[in-house]
Design a protein around this nucleic acid. Structure first.
Length: 512
DNA sequence: ATAGGGTTAG
């Protein structure tokens, strides 16, 4: 920046705190603060907010609490506090690593490093921007002045408790804020909404409602977000009637008109109780009231029809979404369309949709393939699973640079457990052992432990008598050699007796 | 495009 004749200001550094937070570089935060002070830039209250938000984002509530506590004590040695926190982290990390070493697996299992993946070159950038992180000063600099905490910073910390399910701490924090002499620390509507969220998360709807009443008493009016949180809570508890009552109340009693989010929540709530008609009726009511559906509204209504076995209706919603100039169809909407057909095992329809989505420039992702695998399984067409696996396999391969330049358009695919397990399951049932082993190898490459017990059970129940027919002709036996070899390899992987060990394995009476 | 609270996918 100096090269361009402009110096970074406090805003620049506040953004840098957020940057460090987003790339998971907790240990660098303190050096940003030190750099601000050393460069003589004025730290502002927002810097403090950014700091607490960053640590809450890391899930490091202990440090967030220590910052707030230091502020309460009017301390200026914030950097010292943060350095101490870094030191503690380092010590604890070492202890954990020692424990892990002690538990070294006898199979020589290699632990994948849990450290954040650092992008190439990013280290140099940080070294340049934060030279003090390479050569820290002996004594960390002091803040030019102390900052008193306000309700915003308390609420940020409270959000940390809420996100971590610490309901009691959330409630205690509210109580403490109410008792503050400083009016700037009193709970506001965001604070109360955070408390409501904590109760909703814990399924404590009555207590959440009490908070709403208290807000009215305290003269801190609830807003639309508060109501939406409550609506979501009732829906999660499958109390759609109560959600509907609240939807009416918020307009009548509080004068807060429901918005598209309110309707999205209640439409999704209807789905939870298998009420696709209710979902449609709320969708229509919303439009009647002049509230424009978003892509989330359309996708949620599609979900209602997909889940209730009405893919044609889902398709009609999709078409309408296509025609609506206010929204853009996205991958999620395409996936919902695919899912609608797959849930009924209508593979051909699903495949047609996938072709169309590809033509429209959307690449299927893990969710798309997951739906397809499920559909293939339901349709009992294991041959389709082979085609599907072929496509997935090609996208799992890490292509070399020269090769990928031609078609850099297809993004890499990281398959997940659900997808691979489903495909392997289909292959084992269909006695496609060679493919099953390929998929299992892929699981292991991706660090997913295959469910060996389950596959063993399927094998024993379905195939243990395979290739034992005495009536097969010699020609037939020879044709099956290849498959038999695959079966033996699969049995070897399962740990069942196999021809590699020269012992034939017989099915005994089952005990379960 | 700086910091607190809410909604969509197998």
């Amino acid at each position: 920046m100096s090269e361009w004749d402009c110096e970074p200001d406090v805003l620049t550094y506040n953004v840098m705190i957020k940057l460090c937070a987003r790339v998971g570089r907790k240990e660098l935060i303190v050096f940003v603060v030190e750099r601000i002070i050393e460069k003589g830039v004025k730290v502002c209250m927002t810097t403090m907010h950014s700091l607490v938000a960053a640590y809450v984002g890391f899930g490091d509530l202990r440090t967030a609490e220590r910052i707030v506590q230091a502020m309460r004590e009017k301390r200026r040695d914030l950097c010292k506090v943060l350095r101490e926190c870094n030191g503690q982290d380092l010590k604890e990390k070492e202890e954990v690593e020692e424990e892990e070493d002690a538990f070294e697996d006898d199979e020589g299992l290699v632990y994948t490093p849990r450290d954040e993946v650092i992008e190439e070159g990013s280290e140099d950038v940080f070294k340049k921007l934060l030279p003090n992180s390479v050569n820290p000063s002996d004594e960390p600099p002091l803040l030019p002045k102390a900052f008193a905490p306000d309700s915003r910073i308390y609420t940020t910390l409270m959000k940390g408790y809420m996100k971590n399910g610490r309901v009691a701490d959330t409630a205690r924090m509210l109580e403490a804020m109410r008792r503050q002499d400083d009016k700037n620390s009193h709970p506001d509507e965001v604070t109360y909404t955070t408390v409501v969220s904590a109760f909703v998360k814990a399924g404590l709807m009555d207590r959440a409602r009490q908070v709403l009443a208290e807000m009215a008493r305290m003269g801190v009016p609830a807003n639309r977000i508060t109501y939406n949180v409550l609506l979501k809570g009732y829906c999660k508890q499958l109390q759609i009637d109560k959600a509907e009552d609240l939807l009416r109340e918020m307009a009548e009693d509080a004068g807060i008109e429901p918005d598209v989010v309110s309707y999205n929540i209640i439409i999704d709530g209807c789905i939870l109780i298998d009420d696709s008609a209710g979902a449609l009726s709320f969708f229509n009511e919303m439009r009647t009231r002049g509230i424009a559906p978003t892509k989330i509204s359309y996708t949620t209504l599609m979900k209602a029809f997909a889940m209730s076995g009405q893919p044609k209706l889902a398709n009609r919603v999709f078409d309408e979404m296509m025609r609506d100039p206010r929204v853009k169809v996205d991958l999620i909407a395409w996936n919902m369309l695919v899912e609608g057909y797959c849930r009924l095992g209508l593979i051909e329809d699903a495949k047609r949709v996938v072709s169309r989505m590809k033509e429209n420039g959307f690449h299927p992702n893990v969710a798309t393939y997951g739906s397809l695998a499920n559909g293939v399984s339901l349709a009992r067409k294991p041959g389709e699973a082979l085609l599907l696996w072929k496509e997935i396999k090609e996208r799992c391969v890490v292509k070399k640079r020269e090769e990928s330049e031609g078609d850099s358009s297809t993004p890499m695919l990281k398959p997940d457990e659900g997808l691979l397990d489903m495909l392997a399951d289909i292959c084992v049932r269909a006695a496609f052992f060679k493919k099953a082993l390929e998929i299992i190898a892929c699981m292991e490459e991706n660090g997913i432990p295959p469910n060996k017990t389950k596959f063993k059970k399927i094998y024993v129940e379905m195939h243990s008598r395979m290739f034992t027919s005495k009536h097969a002709s010699q020609a037939r036996v020879e044709r099956r050699m290849e498959r038999k070899r695959a079966a033996e390899a699969f049995k070897f992987w399962l740990g069942l007796p196999n021809s590699y060990y020269g012992s034939e394995w017989k099915l005994g009476p089952r005990e379960d």
